[in-house]
């Protein structure tokens, strides 16, 4: 790729030893890129995605675009550098949650960083759900962006904070907060750094030839993610409460064989977690009457999940220990209901 030629390029496939204070991005991503200065200043982040696909916002065109547009920023920055405050380096393998493990892996995936952050807070009894509200999807504030030119708004939800700020399909974002916006990840970073309470984030954008300045007004709780938007994150598996069972979604043939309508959401219980630190959740599911091979039809009256991952994110983000949920299932062709008491 010609656009990468002016850069010193590095490709990292193991997070062991990588200073996460300097190389700070959404560690749930399967592909992420930082465009930065040697002093640690990050100009732009690239690699955002949504729940539809890991490639939803990855393209050669969009990466080349941000690479080209960052070069003048780098030249300007070099004239008046403002290096970030130095912090002691920290890598995932040095994090307390990983140090406590008997067998440390040689290779750490990026998502292991979020896992270690969550585990550490859980270990200290200080974990709160909001600690997992990372890099919000722009849809949480009512808009999404194009794939190939990610500063361009692809759609706005009516009456959302984004719509009230004047954003429309086709506008080009210029700045959000104090950051120049070139990518979806740039947007997510600004939202990530926002506290999550009632807030007001300044935004500038171009519509036609005119530039507009406005603000996205956010109500308290805006940062709590929609389970669907959150569903792709590998770090969701560490969150509690857990259902204690799971398995694959029924394919069209299996739906027909089970006498279910095409398009129905249903999944087969392929595993009940009876091992490791979450074994109690599987034992709890067994106690409730859930068995391997059952087909789960609905939980707490819901069967409007887009995917099995959506179900798991919904359970972890919305259920509370002690709550009782009715699980409707199919076993040997017969429908039955069991009551599951949610455990943490």
């Amino acid at each position: 790729m010609k656009a990468a030629a002016p850069y010193v390029c590095a490709r990292i496939t193991n997070m062991k030893g990588v200073d996460i204070h300097t190389f700070d991005f959404d560690f749930d991503l399967t592909f992420a890129a930082l465009l930065m200065h040697a002093d640690g200043t990050i100009y732009h982040r690239y690699g955002g995605r949504d729940y539809t696909s890991p490639q939803s916002h990855l393209s050669v065109a969009s990466l080349a675009d941000v690479l080209r547009k960052t070069l003048p920023e780098h030249v300007a920055y070099a004239k008046k550098p403002t290096p970030p405050q130095a912090r002691a380096a920290l890598s995932v393998d040095r994090m307390p949650a990983m140090q406590r493990k008997r067998n440390q892996p040689d290779c750490y995936h990026c998502h292991n960083v979020h896992d270690a952050m969550t585990e550490e807070l859980q270990h200290r009894g200080r974990f709160q759900k909001r600690d997992a509200w990372r890099y919000p999807d722009p849809r949480e504030v009512g808009f999404h962006v194009e794939k190939d030119d990610q500063a361009v708004v692809a759609g706005v939800e009516p009456d959302s904070p984004a719509a009230k700020a004047g954003l429309k399909k086709g506008v080009r974002l210029l700045t959000l907060g104090t950051a120049r916006i070139l990518t979806m990840s740039d947007v997510q970073r600004v939202l990530h750094e926002a506290a999550g309470g009632a807030d007001r984030i300044p935004v500038t954008f171009r519509l036609g030839s005119r530039e507009h300045a406005s603000a996205i007004q956010l109500a308290a709780g805006w940062k709590e993610p929609s389970p669907l938007h959150y569903s792709w994150r590998a770090s969701k598996w560490k969150l509690s409460p857990k259902p204690g069972f799971g398995g694959p979604r029924l394919n069209p043939g299996e739906l027909v064989a089970a006498g279910l309508k095409a398009g129905t959401f249903a999944f087969k219980v392929q595993y009940v977690v009876t091992w490791g630190p979450s074994a109690h959740t599987g034992r709890n599911a067994l106690k409730a009457g859930i068995r391997k091979g059952d087909v789960i039809l609905s939980i707490a009256g819901r069967n409007d999940f887009e995917s099995v991952e959506h179900f798991h994110a919904w359970f972890r983000l919305t259920q509370k220990a002690g709550a009782k949920v009715v699980v409707e299932l199919l076993r040997s062709g017969k429908r039955r209901s069991v009551e599951l008491t949610v455990v943490d």
């Binding site: 850069y7 010193v8 390029c9 590095a10 990292i12 465009l35 930065m36 040697a38 070069l71 780098h74």
Partner: peptide
């Protein structure tokens, strides 16, 4: 990569996957 960027004055593209 940081040492080479300091030496050459070039920006860094760090890819993680």
């Amino acid at each position: 990569a940081r040492a080479k960027a300091r030496e050459t004055g070039r920006p860094i593209l760090a890819v993680f996957r």
